[in-house]
Design a protein around this nucleic acid. Structure first.
Lengths: 107, 107
DNA sequence: TTGACATATAAGCGAGTGCTTATATACTTC
DNA sequence: GAAGTATATAAGCACTCGCTTATATGTCAA
């Protein structure tokens, strides 16, 4: 069985450590070692989180000497954003509720 | 031990069944029984998902006769939306990358 | 090649998840 | 009250998660 078979984006971002990794990578690409320094957990733990993010398509990576640099690939976050945006009018648009009411076919 | 102690919103929406429940509740409030009909799993399974959503503050509920109606409480989804919106410029704003680059203090 | 460094993988462990069936609770009707 | 309906909780089970330590792999430098 594949170690962490093609992971779902929603599950990937459910973990706070992984969200923090993404936030860090949003600033600049970083090596595994640099990331490890930002957390109080072992290097394998970070590598495992990075694998989940990689499997979910949320990060890319390439070698640079003996370092391996990870960079953000934010496109797939669009699924999360689009889904939640579906609810955004509930708190942004004052007329949202009325609008949705009037949109129903029987009005 | 509390059955599913105060749940995190990100974890609550990580499950596809729970997202589907939220989507259904976005249309209209529904009783547990009505929701059960939409899924091919047992009533307790749905009740357990509803509890997770309730503990995460994503749904409200009230009795109505012998029914218990659940309704969406979307406010807390804002956390998810705001977090993902933080990345939205990566795919919406063509000048986003340049803008972020110029925003750095050393430019 | 050898040794040091950087990262990934393996194996194991306790805790959590998502379901099931069985049962308890709450409400309504008779 | 008793019986029926609607929902919640309990217990159990297989599986997954997030971590650990130990080890394997890859890269550079001497």
């Amino acid at each position: 069985m594949p170690p962490a078979a093609s992971k779902d984006v929603f599950r990937a971002v459910a973990d706070p450590t992984r969200r923090r990794i993404l936030d860090l990578l949003a600033e600049s690409e970083q090596s595994v070692g640099e990331l490890v320094l930002r957390f109080s957990m072992s290097q394998p733990a970070i590598s495992q989180h990075l694998r989940v993010l990689y499997d979910a398509g949320l990060v890319g990576r390439h070698r640079e000497g003996r370092l391996k640099k990870y960079r953000l690939r934010p496109e797939r976050l669009r699924r999360v954003h689009d889904w939640s945006a579906h609810y955004a009018h509930f708190w942004t648009d004052k007329l949202g509720a009325l609008g949705r009411y009037l949109d129903k076919p029987d009005h």
